[in-house]
């Protein structure tokens, strides 16, 4: 579910087809930098009602989704 939310945010942000966003897609290839990621994480925090600490660099969409799932507890 988190992956789908992130994919939707990315599709909205960069204007691409959501179907093109895979778990192994890198943020770099999608044209998303770390500040874009931080902005999306804020929206996820609001939607999920949790605080997400961004301590590690995430390379792929799947990594971020997995990390957020782990933060949900």
């Amino acid at each position: 579910m988190v992956f789908e939310k992130i994919a939707a945010l990315i599709a909205d942000h960069v204007g691409c087809d959501i179907a093109d966003i895979k778990a192994e897609s890198t943020f770099e290839a999608l044209g998303i930098d770390s500040l874009d990621t931080a902005e999306m994480v804020i929206e996820l925090e609001e939607e999920l009602g949790i605080e997400i600490q961004l301590k590690e660099k995430m390379e792929t969409v799947g990594q971020l989704a997995k990390y957020i799932e782990s933060q949900k507890g």
């Binding site: 770390s34 500040l35 990621t37 931080a38 902005e39 994480v41 600490q53 961004l54």
Partner: peptide
């Protein structure tokens, strides 16, 4: 911490 700073600020 760039991303956390950015998150707090926005």
């Amino acid at each position: 911490e760039g991303q956390e700073t950015f998150k707090f600020a926005i």
